[in-house]
């Protein structure tokens, strides 16, 4: 009996498989590449090939693509990523008080007290404090993103780089490069700029007290972790499966949901062989002109997304 969690994010699609004792049996990290349907299908196929004869007792989806993911796999719960991350962290440690989460396109802070989320914030219109920004800069410096953190730790001093805006940070960085600073100093400066931006922007007005968990894809970056510890003045814990926390959280919530309802809505792994096609059209039922997406599995329509009134997706109340 396994529980499946699917986290469809902007950059990556993560699948986590946990058993009833909350052990992570298998996990997959795939690039979404803007095609969530393909990523989900591919992920399920890989899971099936690796673990034969497994039985899924519950499935949950999270991430910005959680609705489309749910339509495809038949999820028991569709949960926002803030709750999913909090649930996964609390499963590891009931005493966690702050979660710093930095993903591909967004960053969040979650404040917990006594095992309950009391406050949270997400980055607003700017992406300067997110993984995409680091990705872009790593590319520019021609350093693999995996080694980015190690470079930062090598530096003795750091260069101050403006972190307010990704575009200006880049020009500031180029300017500092021209002055002759070496790569590791620049990278450490970047990490510190990003942390500064995060704390001033997302973490503004929030009381950050230990234990602090650092989750999301960016948590793999040792340079950022060090910069956080520097800025906050205490230890920041990176959980072992930091990149999978959203998917794990979704699996846990799904398990609890199925415990109440008794049976799962999960469609099974057969859909890996199906042909999934999405087509979109503009509904002309009213002046809203919603762009509706229709998802077909082979010949059958399995769901509609994007209509506000519920005319197509059969949500409640028209």
């Amino acid at each position: 009996m396994y529980y499946l969690g699917v986290d469809v994010g902007s950059v990556s699609t993560d699948l986590a498989l946990i058993d009833k004792d909350m052990n992570l049996i298998d996990s997959l990290y795939l690039r979404t590449k803007g095609r969530p349907i393909n990523a989900i299908q591919e992920g399920l196929k890989l899971l099936k090939d690796k673990n034969s004869n497994m039985e899924i007792a519950a499935a949950g989806t999270t991430g910005s693509g959680r609705h489309i993911a749910s339509t495809i796999i038949g999820a028991d719960i569709i949960k926002n990523e803030i709750t999913a991350h909090a649930v996964a962290a609390l499963e590891i440690d009931r005493d966690v008080k702050t979660i710093l989460e930095i993903g591909g396109q967004d960053s969040k802070i979650i404040i917990l007290r006594n095992g309950v989320v009391t406050d949270f914030a997400m980055n607003t219109v700017c992406a300067a404090g997110t993984g995409s920004f680091l990705d872009r800069q790593a590319e520019r410096l021609e350093i693999p993103i995996e080694e980015f953190g190690d470079y930062a730790l090598k530096a003795n001093t750091s260069v101050r780089i403006a972190g307010r805006c990704a575009v200006f940070a880049e020009s500031d960085m180029i300017h500092k490069q021209q002055l002759g600073y070496n790569d590791s100093e620049i990278i450490r400066g970047l990490c510190e700029a990003m942390v500064r931006n995060y704390l001033n922007n997302v973490g503004k007005g929030k009381e950050i007290v230990p234990k602090v968990f650092f989750q999301g894809g960016v948590a793999a970056n040792k340079g950022i972790k060090a910069a956080f510890e520097n800025a906050l003045g205490f230890e920041v814990i990176v959980p072992k499966n930091h990149g999978m926390m959203g998917a794990i959280g979704a699996a846990i919530i799904a398990r609890d949901a199925v415990a109440k309802t008794g049976r799962t809505k999960f469609k099974g792994f057969d859909l890996t062989d199906s042909k999934l096609v999405s087509t979109s059209f503009e509904c002309d039922g009213c002046s809203n002109k919603c762009e509706v997406v229709r998802i077909n599995e082979n010949e059958n329509i399995i769901g509609y997304l994007g209509d506000r009134c519920g005319k197509w997706s059969n949500k409640i109340a028209i």
Partner: peptide
Amino acid sequence: VTRIEAFVDL
């Protein structure tokens, strides 16, 4: 929607 859902959850 994520924010609204998370707030209601909270």
